[in-house]
Amino acid sequence: MYIDGIPQFYKQQPIEQNGIVFVPLRDIYEKLGAKVTSDTKTNTVIITKGNTVIKLPRGKDFAYVNGKSVKLSAKMFTNNGVIMIPVDFLKVSLGSSVEWLSVPKVVVITSKAQTVNGIKVLYGGHTYASRNQKEYDTVMKIVREYISKEYDKLVFGESRNKYYLEYLDGARFNGDKRDRSERNVGLYLAQGSIGELVSAGVSKEGVIRAWKTGFLAGTLASGTVDPGDGKPRSAYDNLVRRVSDCDAHAQVYSAVWDAMGYNTLIIAGSGHADMLVQIEGHWFKPGAGSFLRVDLNGSLKKGAKIIFQPTYGQIK
């Protein structure tokens, strides 16, 4: 879940029931600057922000916003002691923009438009080098539709899924490249693909999700022509104009990984740009299904420069 581009971590995360997404009422409204109280006499939750007063009778499928009755898409309920409210009510009650991305199951709440160089953006300050709003919106539409269509189809490790899973469970290549057995080859390939994620202590679920995301980004960014003139620079150049170089590739990778809920940045050195992604506290340079762990501080000390800051936070 994101609020104004910042990832949120609460005791009770969003819940999807019958196609409706519920979020923790108090956490969300207080984060949006509202005050939440309860009237025990009327069994009503009261939310106030500025001149807006919201009253939510418990167990009912309606609420009052400044005295006007508003029907809820579903009744609020309590889960683990936390009151859950349909996320779409945020738009009705406070005018916040709300998006539910079914893949990769992310709630995006925007209470104030984030604008960078005149472009309203979704994730941090990343525009993916778009020249205008139309280019940005086109890029995000392509990225989101691609993720929604392809993510669930992906099989971790593809035809060698069995051996990739074995690698996660501790099995390893025996060190003998002359052994061309299917299993040994599969474990060797798994080592080259996800070995650095595993050695960094990334969780099994985290490795699988990262592999799928990297595969998607690599596939989406492929199939372009490099004109060799240094002009391609944006995700739009890659995805729409179909011309690309390292800069445009990095922007596509950033857009895909951002949309999947990760923290990304773009770093440059020696005339080359790379996107780095933070996975469970570690920075990696991803390829199409492979990962190289990066010492970011060491790279910066050696002269590399961050040309696009992280999605969340700043690095000086």
Rank of each mutant, 00 (worst) to 15 (best):
165 L>I: 02
296 L>V: 07
159 S>E: 14
314 Q>E: 14
62 F>N: 02
14 P>T: 09
136 Y>W: 02
94 L>N: 06
198 V>F: 06
111 S>P: 09
214 G>D: 09
261 G>D: 08
287 G>P: 07
56 L>S: 03
244 S>M: 05
142 I>T: 14
55 K>Y: 00
209 R>H: 14
18 N>P: 07
159 S>H: 07
129 A>E: 14
108 V>N: 10
62 F>V: 02
148 S>M: 08
167 Y>C: 02
311 T>E: 05
315 I>K: 09
70 V>Y: 00
36 V>H: 09
229 D>K: 04
226 D>N: 15
21 V>M: 09
221 A>H: 03
8 Q>W: 09
160 R>M: 11
132 N>W: 00
51 N>Q: 11
285 K>I: 04
36 V>N: 04
60 K>N: 10
117 N>E: 12
74 A>K: 07
211 W>Q: 00
15 I>F: 14
247 D>I: 06
190 A>W: 04
276 L>F: 06
235 A>T: 03
260 M>S: 05
126 H>C: 06
35 K>E: 14
105 K>T: 11
198 V>C: 03
219 T>W: 00
279 I>P: 02
255 A>L: 08
307 I>Q: 08
64 Y>C: 01
212 K>A: 14
17 Q>W: 05
249 H>E: 09
215 F>G: 00
244 S>F: 10
154 L>A: 08
194 I>L: 05
123 Y>K: 02
84 M>D: 10
30 E>P: 04
159 S>D: 09
301 K>R: 15
57 P>G: 06
266 I>C: 11
267 I>N: 00
116 V>F: 03
214 G>F: 07
241 R>L: 15
125 G>P: 02
229 D>H: 03
36 V>C: 07
210 A>M: 12
63 A>Q: 10
191 Q>P: 03
269 G>M: 07
145 E>S: 11
183 R>K: 15
152 D>L: 13
214 G>E: 10
6 I>N: 11
257 W>S: 00
60 K>L: 05
137 D>W: 10
250 A>W: 06
77 F>L: 08
293 R>H: 07
119 I>W: 04
175 G>E: 10
310 P>Q: 15
1 M>D: 07
138 T>Q: 08
183 R>Q: 13
54 I>D: 04
260 M>E: 12
315 I>E: 13
283 W>E: 04
140 M>W: 13
162 K>H: 06
262 Y>V: 01
21 V>G: 03
142 I>N: 04
99 E>I: 11
104 P>D: 14
